[in-house]
Computed example of a mutant assay.
Amino acid sequence: MEERDYLAENAAYLKKDLGKNNISQNLFQRFKELITNGQLPAGYMMPNENVVSEQLGIGRSTLREAYTALAVFGFIRRSKAGTFVNEIDNIVNIAPFSITVENSDLNDLLEFRYMLEGETASYAAKRATKDDIAQLEYYYEKMKEFRHDVNQFVDYDSMFHMQVAVATHNKLLMSTMLASKDSFENGIRLAMRESLTQNPRVIDVTIELHGKIIEAIKGGDYQTAYTAMREHISYVNLTVKYG
């Protein structure tokens, strides 16, 4: 008996009106819904990433971002054998924390990330693989490419920070970063728009600081990675508060 291709059956829903921004987040939400309601059943092995990317009309990096989020929350598990849908009972539920983050003041969120992300960058410097670093470099280059497009710039900035968390290979750190991702993005977009009208150098400084972070992680220099990340978050704090 031929196995059902559940992904192909749901491909039209997954790819419909994904938009131009937050594609990976939108895809994550749709995969989550299909897994929760059983349309992508427990034990189902996802097709090869190239096949899925082609079916959905998206890049592999976008698909991997969605997969990373799904894996962090326990919806899927990834191994050398493939990508599999988990049993519902195994799915991690951190909704209460997510709700707390969504209702937090932006300054509180920035202070929280100041405490969290320095350590995250430090662990990333100790544990990042070649693939992790390649993905960080990709997002960094995209930030430079879209320096004149605030929405796109913030998207890739956020992906960069999420990838730093992924490079720690610590699921709790990844979950915490993911839970704060949307609230952080929305607040920073508003802050960036306001700041750019007063100080066009904000984006240039942000790019420069990200460059320091990535070089420290590449070099395995966990102390510099820690310092550079805290310098970056401090700069964002000042930008948000004082423009």
Rank of each mutant, 00 (worst) to 15 (best):
I207S: 04
L209I: 06
F153Q: 01
D5R: 06
T197S: 06
E65N: 15
L110G: 09
I188N: 07
A124F: 00
A66M: 03
S61E: 13
Y67Q: 13
Y139H: 08
N26F: 14
S195T: 11
L178K: 03
V164N: 02
K15Q: 11
S53V: 15
L136N: 02
I23E: 12
S104Q: 08
K32C: 12
K16E: 15
R60G: 15
G59Q: 14
F146N: 06
M143R: 01
Q163P: 10
K80R: 09
A179K: 03
I94W: 05
S158G: 11
E145R: 04
M192N: 02
A228M: 04
M159R: 14
V51K: 14
Y140W: 05
A128S: 01
R127W: 00
L18A: 09
L196N: 02
N199P: 12
M177C: 14
V150T: 13
L40H: 09
T120A: 11
A216F: 01
V202M: 05
L106D: 08
D105S: 13
K20C: 03
T129E: 02
G118D: 01
Y6S: 08
F112T: 07
L70T: 08
E33F: 04
A125F: 00
V150A: 11
K80E: 13
L178T: 13
V205M: 15
M45Q: 14
N103C: 09
S104H: 03
E208H: 11
V236H: 02
F31S: 10
K142F: 01
I99K: 06
G59R: 13
E194V: 07
M174E: 12
L136I: 07
Q39W: 04
S79I: 07
A12N: 14
P41M: 13
F153Y: 05
G220Y: 01
M162P: 04
T68Q: 14
I76N: 03
D204F: 04
I94V: 15
M143Q: 02
D108W: 08
M45Y: 12
M1S: 09
I91T: 10
Y44F: 15
R4P: 11
D182L: 09
G38C: 06
A125I: 00
F184D: 12
P47M: 00
K218I: 06
L109M: 08
Q198G: 09
M46A: 09
F97H: 11
F31E: 09
Y156C: 03
V101D: 06
E3L: 14
D132L: 05
S122P: 06
K144N: 11
S104L: 07
A125W: 00
H148F: 08
L178I: 13
M192P: 03
K241P: 03
T36P: 02
F28A: 04
T239R: 08
L190Y: 05
D108A: 15
R147S: 10
Q25N: 11
N103W: 06
T239Y: 06
M229I: 01
T100L: 13
H161Y: 07
F84L: 08
V240C: 08
G57Q: 09
E49R: 14
L106Q: 10
G211L: 05
E137D: 14
Y222H: 05
G82P: 00
Y6Q: 10
